[in-house]
Design a protein around this nucleic acid. Sequence first.
DNA 1: CCAAAGATACCATCTGGTTGGTATCTTTCA
DNA 2: TGAAAGATACCAACCAGATGGTATCTTTGG
Lengths: 184, 184
Amino acid sequence: MASAYERKKEPALVRRRLLEHGARLCVEHGVAGLSLQAVADTAGVTKGGLLHHFPTKQALVDAIFDELLQSFEGRVRQLMDADPERFGRFTRAYINATLELLGGEEVVQWSALMMSSVTEPRLKQRWADWLDGQLKQNKQTDSAPALELARHAADGIWLAALLGQGAPPSKALRQALLGLTRKS
Amino acid sequence: MASAYERKKEPALVRRRLLEHGARLCVEHGVAGLSLQAVADTAGVTKGGLLHHFPTKQALVDAIFDELLQSFEGRVRQLMDADPERFGRFTRAYINATLELLGGEEVVQWSALMMSSVTEPRLKQRWADWLDGQLKQNKQTDSAPALELARHAADGIWLAALLGQGAPPSKALRQALLGLTRKS
DNA sequence: CCAAAGATACCATCTGGTTGGTATCTTTCA
DNA sequence: TGAAAGATACCAACCAGATGGTATCTTTGG
């Protein structure tokens, strides 16, 4: 066991729970339909407690988005480092990271945030900036039209997985996609 | 002029205005954040008037979705009829109809509804059913893996256009996409 | 003791929806 | 034809409940 001594307050853990449940509820009701009360309840804290950690609703949403973006970027970097081929390195990492998302738990969080980005200019801008920065950083290896198309296709697959509730993308599709990222 | 007699009530026109402004507001605040009051105000009707045409918020949202889906299906059919080549006919029409959307006014309506579909199971199901039906209907001509990939790419381009606010897709990208839909 | 963590109580505002009423349009029928 | 009858379109006021946020209090950890 972790400890015989039971701490009564664990702010870091509470913070994590708030972020997790907040993200989950975003999926179910959308960011606009997200209620602080609901987040607090499901996280086992009162609204006052929630507002102690995140002084406004916007602060909570921003925190959720930041965490996801950071984790995604980390995974992309990791995949890029492990890829021996230069050409299309970022695109392959992007595709794989995106498709990986579909299997894991985080997908629900991402879906909510990306969808909300359409209606929330602040989030939209943040995502656009991130992608722009990545593309600029990797423009020598990842600016070919075929690669752009491949990235779009990955996004499309991801979107389809969210809309059609079942059936993860076939391996053949994934291979075809990655095939686009190699110099012919 | 149409008539010297001025009609004082034009329910059909009011209904249209409600749908249009409703769709627009969906984009700005999301379906969950859509307020009947706001729709009524921008459409120049009271909330009571709005609720006369659409007895619940759900009815309003459903009506918006239905109209869009119907118009999209009509455009797809039109494009299919004009396409002399059998193989990939539906996919090409789907791609072209989707990319056409990006230039027009309807794109804002679509974005809101599709995004909301992620969080609203009812809309999600409706879209899934529509696409499923179309694919089943055209399975002889449009079930090749390359076509599936092409459709996903079109969706991804559409999504990117929504998230990154500017820069419509290049013609080269569009051509590359359509190239995928021809038998090699 | 004191600052951080969290609970309780509260408020102004907005929500979707109902009600009761009035103005307008359409149909019926003499 | 035309007037009564009834349906449709719309409005203004209102309701109960939920919302984000504040102010204040208690508990805990150091």
